[in-house]
């Protein structure tokens, strides 16, 4: 991120000098800074709303119940975790919170899942197979309800903020399938070496 940030700013300034329009830099920077604040104020409302709703879902046990519903699939994906191990519960909570677009509710479960998985780890400084599978699925992000995206589209004045839900579902299923297959292949390669 540091590289990208410096690249954008320095690249921009050099390019402006190259194009002989160095005078646009200062107003561009100042305008951008104030529109960032305007956008942030807009954002406070929508993020608060969604995290409020997410909190209610968490407190009512809805996220818990959803996890139980998907449980059989996850036991298939993590053969190395013993049945009924607390790691499974945390993984389920984390992935379902992710699917529902509650990114912030997901992180605490995710860290708890890693803690539980670490208890099963014979070499504490090296990642286990279950950890790699968990992160592969987690980072490829199956999203059923991209709440933040929809909220931000609405805030930006979209006529139909949720029209991208189908496209997101398709793309995230593709990336999750690739993640699961790649994880499986790498697991076999690594277990042989």
């Amino acid at each position: 991120m540091n590289w990208i940030f410096s690249f954008l700013i320095l690249g921009g300034i050099f390019a402006a000098a190259w194009n002989g329009r160095l005078e646009v830099i200062t107003p561009a920077a100042l305008n951008a800074a104030s529109s960032a604040i305007e956008r942030a104020i807009n954002l406070m409302g929508v993020i608060s709303l969604w995290l409020g709703i997410a909190k209610v879902a968490e407190a009512s046990g809805l996220i818990d119940q959803m996890s139980k519903f998907i449980a059989p699939v996850f036991t298939l994906l993590f053969p190395s975790i013993p049945r009924g191990h607390p790691a499974l519960g945390s993984i389920l909570m984390n992935l379902s919170a992710n699917m529902l677009g509650f990114g912030n509710a997901a992180t605490p479960f995710g860290l708890k899942a890693m803690k539980e998985l670490q208890k099963l780890n014979p070499h504490p400084d090296t990642a286990t197979e279950a950890m790699c599978t968990f992160l592969a699925i987690n980072t490829s992000g199956v999203t059923l309800v991209p709440a933040t995206i929809i909220a931000l589209r609405a805030a930006a004045g979209s006529k139909n903020p949720s029209e991208v839900v189908g496209a997101i579902l398709f793309a995230s299923i593709c990336s999750t399938l690739v993640a699961i297959v790649a994880d499986y292949i790498f697991r076999i390669i690594y277990s042989k070496s």
């Binding site: 780890n121 950890m131 992160l135 592969a136 793309a171 593709c174 690739v178 993640a179």
Partner: peptide, 27 residues
Amino acid sequence: YFGSVGVRKTRYAIPVGILADSASFLA
């Protein structure tokens, strides 16, 4: 996630992540 439990050797987690990200871009 790995940092939180002190795992330093991430094995194949990063290449899998990059593959999945590229797939998501193309899709």
